[in-house]
Amino acid sequence: MDAHLTGMAGSFRGAFTRGPLVAVLGMAALLGGCSGSEEKAGDFEGPYGSELRAAYESASDPAVRAVLEDGRITRAEYDAALQRFVACAADRGVTVTLEEAYGLYTFSTVGDATEVLDACSPHVETIAALYGRMLTNPDNRDMDEVVVECLRRAEVVSRDYTAETWVADRDAGTQPFSMDAPAVIRCLMNPQAEG
């Protein structure tokens, strides 16, 4: 089954318990099981429907439009977009090394590659950013609320710690926990991932 993210909300907690590879595989399976394969193509419905439609309508890259035209982004399409990005950079002499973390790709280069990556980003950023948002915040809610709920589940903060408190603490640097703690990193990178 081809896992995909659409505008439809879905829950896939519990998929991240045995390392990044298992996490991604579990996430893909769970996503595929709850994201409505019977949904008609191009509906642009659900929490991200308007964003998907806007991205599709504004995209000038045919490859990006082809991905978005059915109103969803599959895991395979996300992977392919990152591979196009890597190939684009390679064509310009820059090696991009991808690394998966909590279901998303981070990457690195050796040497200053800013100009090349900026040139190659239009081929991937729309797809990658929307996929990342739908993965980490499937209901398109206030992200601070989503992060704090994750911090509560991880028992990093108490039940009465609120999103408003988090925003104030974050902006003042007064949060009552280490930003280097693995659970905090996970909640910032992907609040849907289980510890």
Partner: peptide
């Protein structure tokens, strides 16, 4: 002897560590 650049994932929230 060289700079290494690390980039977080694209999205509303992005985090990178090294």
């Amino acid at each position: 002897g060289v700079v290494h650049q690390y980039y977080g994932s694209w999205g509303s929230t992005s985090y990178v560590y090294n």
